[in-house]
């Protein structure tokens, strides 16, 4: 009997040795650890990300008459409406800047962030049919969304620049400055924050659908909590600290300052905003990696 178990044990050891000598390319295991994102795999699927970007961009305006012109009309009309409602009717001051340009700057930057957030927030629910059938790094979808939005942002950004040049030529009191070169960094921050919040929501909506309803008007509320339709200088000094907890406040402020001058950039605020962004982004990635493996069972 003892001999028998000995034999069994040695056989087991042999098996283990054999196993080590074998080269497995993929090992599927239950969900382990709290961080499980395979970046090199994501890189291997870069062609897929590119195709997702193409699909999202092309399919968005198929069978529309105006096509990509919509990219321009959206911020244009929003800025016009804001000018009329908040500028003319409510008479909210804009730090002496041309009202239209003031709102346009806020809307252009905010749109990018809001689009990243809302569109990534239903990653799991909207892609159930694909995710349920085939494996690819799930993160490819939200990343593609962020890139797609970058394209539409670029188009809208060009429009904004055109208006800025026009107003400058007309002799408006705008002062573009060195901070213009910080725009790429601001874009990265907005993308990271939008993606972070978006994938947190998408991870949680696999179980709690309520959040899906919250996203739409939550983003709306967030916009009003950010100095888009009003300058931060209009907020009483003793309440300005509240904006420290809104990472978007510093981003929008800096974006506007870079092109228009006025309303200063406060470095500590910007640093805190960046730190918050990194935190949110990190939490998002961790949550996402936890959910992506088994969400098919709960969705």
């Amino acid at each position: 009997m003892a001999e028998h178990t000995m034999k069994e044990a040695s056989a087991k050891i042999k098996m283990r040795e054999k196993e080590n000598s074998e080269q497995w390319t993929t090992v599927i295991k239950p969900r382990t650890g709290w961080f499980d994102i395979n970046l090199s795999e994501l890189w291997r699927y870069r062609d897929l990300i590119a195709l997702f970007v193409r699909r999202d961009f092309v399919a968005q305006y198929k069978q529309t008459i105006l096509g990509p012109t919509w990219f321009l009309l959206q911020p244009l009309f929003t800025a016009i409406v804001f000018t009329v409602v908040f500028g003319r009717i409510a008479q909210i001051p804009t730090d002496g800047l041309p009202q239209f340009l003031f709102y346009m700057a806020g809307v252009t930057a905010w749109n990018y962030f809001a689009a990243c957030l809302t569109k990534t927030s239903d990653t799991f629910v909207a892609n159930t049919s694909i995710f349920g059938k085939v494996y690819f790094p799930r993160l490819a979808v939200p990343i593609a969304i962020v890139i797609t939005n970058l394209i539409s942002f670029t188009i809208q950004f060009v429009l904004f620049i055109a208006f800025t040049v026009y107003f400058y030529a007309q002799g408006s009191s705008i002062e573009p400055n060195i901070w213009v070169f910080a725009i790429p960094l601001l874009l990265i921050q907005m993308a990271a924050l939008g993606l972070g919040v978006g994938i947190i929501v998408s991870s949680l909506t696999t179980k709690y659908r309520d959040l899906a309803y919250l996203v739409g008007f939550g983003t709306q509320l967030w916009m009003y909590a950010t100095p888009i339709v009003y300058p931060i200088s209009q907020i009483p000094a003793k309440w300005q600290w509240v904006f420290l907890f809104n990472p978007m406040a510093a981003v929008i402020g800096t974006f506007r300052y870079a092109f228009l001058g006025k309303s200063a950039v406060q470095l500590p605020q910007l640093a805190l905003s960046a730190a918050l962004t990194i935190l949110v982004f990190f939490i998002g990635i961790v949550l996402f990696s936890r959910v992506e493996k088994t969400f098919m069972d709960t969705v």
């Binding site: 993929t26 295991k29 239950p30 059938k133 494996y135």
Partner: peptide, 11 residues
């Protein structure tokens, strides 16, 4: 598409 609850698969 989904992860197992227990056990491994090597491929």
């Amino acid at each position: 598409v989904t992860a197992p609850t227990k056990g491994t698969v090597k491929i």
